[in-house]
């Protein structure tokens, strides 16, 4: 059979592609789909609810109250001298965004079987759009954080004397990008490995809930005195982000350029590795999912 010159073909479907073929152009071509997915997530989030977006505020408020009672008042875990509502709210909102990104990315394959089984588009669009639509919740919670912050500062409520904002708060956008990147990276890796064996998915539910306690959310890093334990905590790549955020906005926490750089490198490595695994997996996952 006469083979045509490869250059003429616009599509070539092969059993395997090179590991490094990421096809960013294709992702870019589908940017409209990404924005429509985001819009879908946002418009359908609270359809047919009475309170609507208020739920974005009610949920973290209840969690913060619960933490304040259980961890603050009963277990008496210190908060670096910061007002409990602000301390917990910062941790809960950041963790909410991170675990949201992780969760959406993680269920990319298993949660979209029907869609993926019928039509092709770059599968990465789904977890990427999840990062952006998660920002809506996060943004509202950050507004809540700002309101509570102002109430404390201008109301001179007890604990407000310890509050101070500094220039590292300007790193906030970087923190958000890093949380999203880490969530996406971990998520797509786990998603790729759980298409065949659901064990990974079950395991990860468990790991995520433990992970929260390995992150300085309900306690500040400064309470960890054992140097080995502290090192273990800092190896957790989200720790430096949480501490950096609290340091920048509340004035208490352990800010470290070194650990932030470490987290950033982890994120880049995870994203690279994750995209490669994900791209390999997306080609055949329908057979095993």
């Amino acid at each position: 059979m006469a083979k045509n010159n490869n250059g003429e073909w616009t599509t070539i479907i092969r059993p395997k592609e090179s590991l490094w073929k990421l096809n960013l152009k294709e992702l870019w071509d589908y940017r409209d789909l990404c924005s429509l997915f985001i819009r879908r997530d946002i418009t359908t989030a609270f359809k047919q609810t009475v309170l609507g977006p208020l739920w974005f505020i009610i949920q973290p408020t209840m969690t913060v109250l619960l933490y304040a009672v259980v961890f603050g008042n009963i277990a008496k875990i210190p908060t670096d001298g910061l007002p409990e509502p602000l301390f917990y709210l910062a941790g809960v909102s950041l963790w909410g965004y991170f675990s949201g990104c992780l969760g959406r990315a993680r269920s990319t394959f298993t949660g979209n079987v029907n869609l993926f089984g019928k039509v092709y588009f770059p599968r990465l669009i789904v977890p990427i759009s999840g990062l952006v639509s998660g920002l809506l919740t996060f943004g509202i919670q950050m507004l809540l954080f700002a309101v509570v912050y102002c109430v404390y500062v201008f109301g001179h409520l007890p604990g407000s004397e310890h509050l101070s904002m500094n220039y590292t708060a300007l790193l906030f956008p970087l923190y958000v990008v890093m949380l999203a990147g880490l969530g996406l990276g971990f998520g797509i890796i786990f998603s790729s490995f759980s298409t065949k064996y659901r064990d990974i998915g079950i395991l990860l539910n468990y790991v995520t809930s433990l992970w929260m306690y390995a992150t300085p959310i309900i306690y500040p890093l400064s309470t960890v005195t054992d140097p080995r334990l502290k090192m273990a905590m800092q190896i957790n790549p989200v720790t430096s982000i949480f501490e950096g955020f609290k340091y920048g906005f509340l004035g208490a926490g352990e800010f470290s350029w070194n650990w932030l750089s470490y987290s950033f490198i982890v994120m880049v490595v995870l994203l690279l590795f994750g995209t490669i695994v994900f791209n390999q997996k997306e080609r055949n996952f329908m057979d095993t999912v």
Binding site: N4, N6, E8, W9, T10, T11, I12, I13, R14, P15, K16, F116, G117, K118, V119, Y120, R283, N284, M286, D287
Partner: peptide
Amino acid sequence: KITAPTTGDIRAR
């Protein structure tokens, strides 16, 4: 492109 072939390839214009 929902799933990839095991062997062989498909070319299209």
